[in-house]
């Protein structure tokens, strides 16, 4: 029986992918090697792991405004997460996702999304419906 998680209305299209999860935060500038498509900040809990085509599940956004352009640039090269799910997005990630047409959701009713979703879960994200479904449980 799939698990349905309600969240705030987000931005971007309906997508499906495998989850990559950490209780850590996100900035495209601070944390990523965007050419290789991996987390490059040594202190990040996902350091060394690829973020390409995954549903990235993290706590919140941090850092600066560069992520807004960077999500668009990453999407144009196809070296990009399939979606980003956060407990709390900031304005920058929302703006960047809107330009890039990248799926982004936050504010999950059932609690901490980094605990609700596990690494490797098969996840369907429907931002405009405010809904994320874990299909494998």
């Amino acid at each position: 029986m799939p698990i349905v998680l309600k969240c705030h209305v987000g931005v971007g299209p309906k997508i499906r992918g495998r989850a990559l999860v950490a209780d850590d935060n996100f900035s495209a500038r601070y944390d990523l090697d965007r050419i290789r498509g991996v987390f490059s900040r040594p202190q990040h809990k996902l350091a060394g792991q690829s973020y390409r085509d995954v549903v990235l599940v993290l706590n919140t956004a941090k850092g600066g405004v560069a992520s807004a352009w960077m999500l668009h640039e990453m999407k144009s090269r196809g070296v990009c997460p399939a979606a980003i799910l956060l407990n709390s997005a900031n304005t920058i990630l929302a703006q960047g996702a809107a330009l890039a047409d990248l799926s982004l959701c936050d504010r999950f009713e059932a609690g901490d999304v980094t605990e609700l979703i596990r690494k490797g879960d098969d996840v369907e994200v429907e931002p405009l419906a405010g809904k994320v479904t874990i299909l494998n449980r």
Binding site: R29, G64, V65, A66, W69, M70, H72, E73, K75, S76, R77, L99
Partner: peptide
């Protein structure tokens, strides 16, 4: 507006 070419990339500049 913040917009350095590293962040923009080719896609951002074209946009």
């Amino acid at each position: 507006m913040m917009a350095d070419p590293e962040s923009l990339g080719e896609a951002g500049v074209c946009f």
